[in-house]
Design a binder for these strands. Sequence first.
DNA 1: CTCAGCTCCTGCGGGC
DNA 2: TGCCCGCAGGAGCTGA
Length: 287
Amino acid sequence: MPELPEVETVRCGLLPAMEGQRIARAELRRADLRWPFPDGMSARLTGARVVQLRRRSKYILADLDRGESLIIHLGMSGRMVISGLAAVHVPGQFHFEHPALEKHDHVILHMESGARITFNDPRRFGAMDLCATAALDAHPLLAGLGPEPLGNAFNADYLAARLAGRKTPIKAALLDQRIVAGLGNIYVCEALFRARIHPKRAAGRIGRARIEALTDAIRATLREAIAAGGSSLRDYRQANGELGYFQHSFRVYGREGVGCLRLGCTGILRRIVQSGRSSFYCPICQR
DNA sequence: CTCAGCTCCTGCGGGC
DNA sequence: TGCCCGCAGGAGCTGA
């Protein structure tokens, strides 16, 4: 899926169309994504105003003026397409006219402003749910999430405590959303490369200095990706329909067989499979 | 509790 | 051109 930086980019793209705006009609073109939509979702959204649009981990949270929040997860292939946003229309950037319905357009929010927000998700690993705003922290999808990697609660002390004694590879530990929320396959690979840690290294066998380097690397990687507007792989588009461009900054992800970018390093980047997912790393730099 | 493996779904690119 | 295979950003679930 879009990882934290992409979700943040999507959230920012949605702000002008959603925050403070009223939903005139919620059109559900099927009854489920990964899970069935909650009972009466269309009616519960219709007429509601979005008070605030937030992000937690890879979830977008739209707080409504009725005490409920819409929880949105983009899964692997979900994207949001805005159209008809006259107020902030920039030629060539936003679709002004509503485009024809496309395959996999599953949910359409028709805003009172005339804007339209279309959730498109070919693989349907995405999800939407409604939950009382006051009870969001206890929602099954959110309750177990670890701290935000860009927040104060995520630091070397915390990470060291969570990794202590763990034999699982650091790659798997960082993908575990209970330990830190929002990282995915790409940014874990990138952060481990920056911190020069081998993806197979046992999580509990990383020294304190290297854990500090790792927390710094995670934060720097995410910050740069957000600043760059999120990455863009096959299925990903920014909310305004434009491509992101952080993919040009990947140092290891998807670069199997080419030379390590670290100055002076002669390593050839490798791809291995860990718990069914590709890890890219430099066998010389990363230990 | 921890951990590896499987699973949901569709689309795309490469090899033949 | 068409078919088959492997692979893809997530993460819940099962069973050892």
